[in-house]
Design a protein around this nucleic acid. Structure first.
Lengths: 216, 216
DNA sequence: CGTTGTGAAGGAGTTCACAGCA
DNA sequence: TGCTGTGAACTCCTTCACAACG
């Protein structure tokens, strides 16, 4: 039953499995049990088996999963076997860091455009690419077959840029602006808010530090 | 019943509410209904009410929530009313960006140390701070009362740094290295893997782009 | 024999719907 | 009258436990 219905929680874990499998492959390991995978990924073996069962993947009972084969299956499921050109909009501190970031130029991903609204930045070189004017966004997306965009602008500009990107035909958005974006239905959106992450940690840190000799 | 047992999912949304409330306060709004909050945060009103009920917060029936009061309550719950010195370990592209990042120097957070293992980087100035040697990690954490650390190093160094940070007394870790870290029980850990985010989007983008005139 | 694949049970989070109160 | 606060139903995810099988 190739159901194409993989639960969200499972999809979010597939990259982790892939990571472990690629590391194992590099180390020359040919087989991993669900228990091995679970240990390396910080999960339980039951969760691993259930997740992988959604891929229609078949391990071998008594043995485990064949590393290169499973890595391929996950890559295919995630769509990492095709070229995925992406643009980064907003070349501030974060945008610059992302442009040079390893993970943004691997696994099929390829940064093909850096856009900014500031004329002083346009024309400067960042990570081997010339920064271009955001005015040309629509042309760039269309001509370079861009399907994925990263928004790293200040919050006030994020929504209108998202609208333009969607209208230009983008299929997925990774948003780093600390604001809630609205996109139409088939477009995928994920927001990473660094300040939010800190605040969540702050909550859980309460009671951990600062009270030496607690429960004395 | 001030239960102190706030569900994880709720905690993860509190920063968003706070964001909306602070924006509203700045705009001079004094009252917001759960419906207003839901719209601004991209949620449902029932979820907002249930979340806020965990704070023991009381809105006013027929009216809504008082903006400044609720903002204060959330700030207190998240522990944002006390000073939270933090260090960033690993001053590469990402570490540099985070050091200058707004959200890392607000809401009680304060970057008080930038550490790196590379002698060439030590002594250089980044975002108004001198980069220090990671050898002094333990001293810095202890002397500056650091409770929170950000790891922005390559994956292979992350675990041993986490161990040292925990031993030095840190209470919470924000990890940007693409690897699974293990920390002992009371220490809070969140991992943000940018490459993982892209891969998840890649999955959901499949079928959205590239097939013009689908279901024709 | 050891490990997978999976029904069934359990738990967490969300949504519903409405009683209760300003 | 309008909006909050919340039990109850529902959905999604995780964990358990074991039969199936190489």
């Amino acid at each position: 039953m190739d159901d194409r219905r993989i639960p969200e929680a499972t999809v979010a874990r597939l990259p982790r499995y892939l990571q472990v499998l690629l590391d194992a492959a590099e180390a020359g390991t040919t087989t991993l049990s669900s228990e091995d995978l679970a240990t390396a990924a910080g999960l339980t073996s039951a969760k691993v088996r259930k997740d992988l069962s959604f891929l229609g993947s078949h391990g071998t009972r008594g043995v485990g999963y064949r590393v290169p084969q499973l890595a391929d299956e996950i890559s295919v499921a995630l769509g990492l076997t095709v070229d995925r050109p992406l643009v980064i909009v907003g070349i501030g501190n974060l945008g610059r860091a992302l442009a040079s970031y390893d993970g943004f130029n691997r696994r099929g991903f390829r940064v093909v455009g850096l856009l900014d609204a500031d004329p002083a930045k346009v024309g400067t070189e960042v990570a081997g690419l010339d920064v271009e004017s955001v005015e040309h966004l629509e042309t760039i997306v269309a001509e370079r077959g861009v399907g994925l965009a990263v928004i790293a602008t200040p919050a006030p500009h994020a929504q209108s840029l998202a609208d333009r990107l969607v209208a230009a035909g983008i299929g997925a958005l990774l948003n780093f602006a600390p604001t809630h974006l609205v996109v139409p239905d088939p477009v995928a959106l994920r927001t990473v808010d660094l300040s939010t992450e800190l605040q969540i940690l702050s909550f859980y840190e309460q009671g951990v530090t600062g009270m030496d000799a607690a429960a004395g």
